[in-house]
Design a protein around this nucleic acid. Structure first.
Lengths: 189, 189
DNA sequence: ACAACTAACTAACAAACGTTAGTTTTGTAT
DNA sequence: ATACAAAACTAACGTTTGTTAGTTAGTTGT
């Protein structure tokens, strides 16, 4: 995800700051300094601070939505779909961990239609995930526990993976996928 | 955790706002309005905005630290200690979900010694947790997978439980404990 | 050579920020 | 009633905030 245009570069650098301090604590002057320019110059490329957040979060949310749609259409078992979803999250984490931080922590600072659109997409995503779990239970592939507990347990681990992935010196993605699938599906004992 | 003094009430109300919008996006005037007073009046009771954050986070972190110490001294197996830790997190989540949100999301806005103290406490906590997992592996109670993956998977679920607990209409704590222990330890299949 | 465009700049704005100082109100004990 | 302390108030401060306006330097196309 190397930025090509100047606008993309601004958004990328901003995402680094957002990840560290959160959207509200980052100023346009902070972003400008990282870009090696003055704050006012940023406005030659972007509409404002809100647009940066909006692009960061909504683009990523669309990535999750389209990933979910692809996996749902595959002719594989519910359990295999969950494995694919775990891999989807890991791939996105590895490639876009900064935007993921904003999506997790700063989505509530989106405004108006952007906020509405995000909340709708997130609810849709969770609903589809939940249905896959329910189907897995009904075909006997998954233990008959409350789907909500299972959904939350998996999702919260995947959603905060970005906090942990970088700290542990970028271990191999394929090994990570294998271990995460094992721990999340089969437990630890 | 019902606030008794006026100072505690301010901190409690502030924590509600911090949970919703994050420390940086909440103003002293926001807090004052929720308290039904003017911003300047807050300073009759507290030193400043930083003190609120500091008390919220460090008090809670000490709660985790002392909980960990108690569990470590118990004469029970590593696996039983992990169960106790899961229950500790759930108890704290149920009783102090607002402070937990600040601890998770706004710790980086602590200053100087407060920041140092928090980071030290968190590292200690994780280290002790990791050692219990390692001991569980070495006595054959826990699958011989990378302790880091296990630690992260459990901790990230427990740490974000506060986001999920309230949404699902306050289900019974004991049922929650039972299901969480089951999912986290035995997996879902 | 000249026009057009791009992307930086300086300067400044109005609003909002955390906080301080000094004053007034309120409740309580003598 | 008087004195005192607690807790609210008004007014203002110096900064910082996101953003706008107008200008300037460098590049490109004709």
């Amino acid at each position: 995800m190397k930025p090509t245009t100047r606008k993309e570069e601004i958004i990328f650098q901003a995402s680094q700051l957002f990840k560290e301090k959160g959207f509200s604590a980052v100023t346009m002057r902070d972003i400008a300094q990282l870009m090696g320019m003055k704050a006012a110059s940023l406005y030659n490329h972007i509409e404002g601070k809100q647009e940066i957040l909006s692009i960061l979060i909504l683009d990523l949310a669309k990535g999750f939505t389209s990933g979910m749609r692809e996996i749902e259409q595959m002719k594989i078992s519910p359990l295999q779909k969950i494995e694919k979803l775990i891999e989807l999250h890991i791939d996105i984490t590895v490639n876009q961990s900064e935007a993921l931080a904003s999506l997790n922590n700063d989505w509530m600072h989106l405004e108006d239609q952007d906020l509405e659109e995000f909340v709708r997409m997130r609810e849709d995503y969770e609903e589809h995930f939940r249905n896959i779990i329910k189907e897995g239970i009904s075909v006997g592939q998954i233990q008959p526990r409350h789907p909500e507990v299972i959904l939350f347990s998996i999702l919260s681990t995947l959603r905060t993976l970005y906090l942990w992935y970088q700290k542990r010196g970028k271990l191999d993605v394929n090994i990570l996928k294998r271990d995460m699938v094992a721990v999340l599906l089969r437990g630890i004992i």
